[in-house]
Amino acid sequence: MPLRKLFFFLIPFALSADIVPKETAPQSAKHAPLDQTSPLCYITPPKGWEIAASKNLSKSVQIAFFKKTSSSFSPSINLAVEKSTLSLQEYLKVIRKIHEADHRNRWRQLGKVHTQAGIGQLTEIDTTTEWGSIRMLQLIVVKHGHAYVITAAASKEDMAQYYKEFQTTFRTLQVTSDLIGAIPQMQRRESLQLESEHLLSAWQDLLSTSAKEASSFNDPAFQKAHWIPFQNKVIQDYEDMGAHWQVLVLKAIQENMLSLMSPCEEAPSLQNPEVAKLPEQTEIETKEEI
């Protein structure tokens, strides 16, 4: 009799015990925001191209560049990132179906392209719009559970003119967890590392002394003495790294600084009105997806 009682008593526990790990463990990993799990990626656009305003970009597009021209359709290039567990071939099958679902589109697979982030597959999408025939070249690199998609667009007749610039930009795709480490010269790498450490140290000093901690970042003295000189250094001395890399470095340092503030404090806006404009830049806005 006591055994039977014990049996009845234990059944519910045995049944419910299996539920707990199933409910909690995988979901937190699956719903992790992109900025925490994804490595940083960037492209170096051709010289003279401008950054497009982020308000005009779709959710998964990190950055876009365009060239001002007199033609009715300016060439543009952008980098989009999405989480994907598919292989490159599986991903290509999916996007082929998506693009071919629109009868105006013609999708085809071109060759492989070697990028700094690995080998990618080049595809072509021809489409017709009210403004004429448009050709898009799309390079897809699947790496570390993410699909990196670079899309270059131009009118069909202008494509040959920009093809070389597009190809050069495709090859610059870089996926890294260390932005400063991507600088090729050791001396310049160390110099920026040192500057960023000085900036963070100045920021920590300010946080420990300032009464109005929440507004410290916009503090004119801090801006003038530390942030603006650092920003100018990144823009002027590291121009060769490209505007996308510069945006990512400044944003990463800024986020690092804001993370040092205690969580109960209200974080100041990431957008600083005094931010000096990057070269060839029309508008810079911080994107949460990066």
């Binding site: 403004w131 898009m136 699909a147």
Partner: peptide, 27 residues
């Protein structure tokens, strides 16, 4: 997740057209 697969490609194509149109507008 399956439904969302391909959004990078779709968003890229859509944004490329939008930016190119706006670029012409800026020019």
């Amino acid at each position: 997740a399956l439904w969302r697969t391909g959004t990078g490609s779709q968003d890229g194509a859509y944004s490329a057209i939008v930016v190119s149109m706006l670029g012409w507008g800026l020019g």
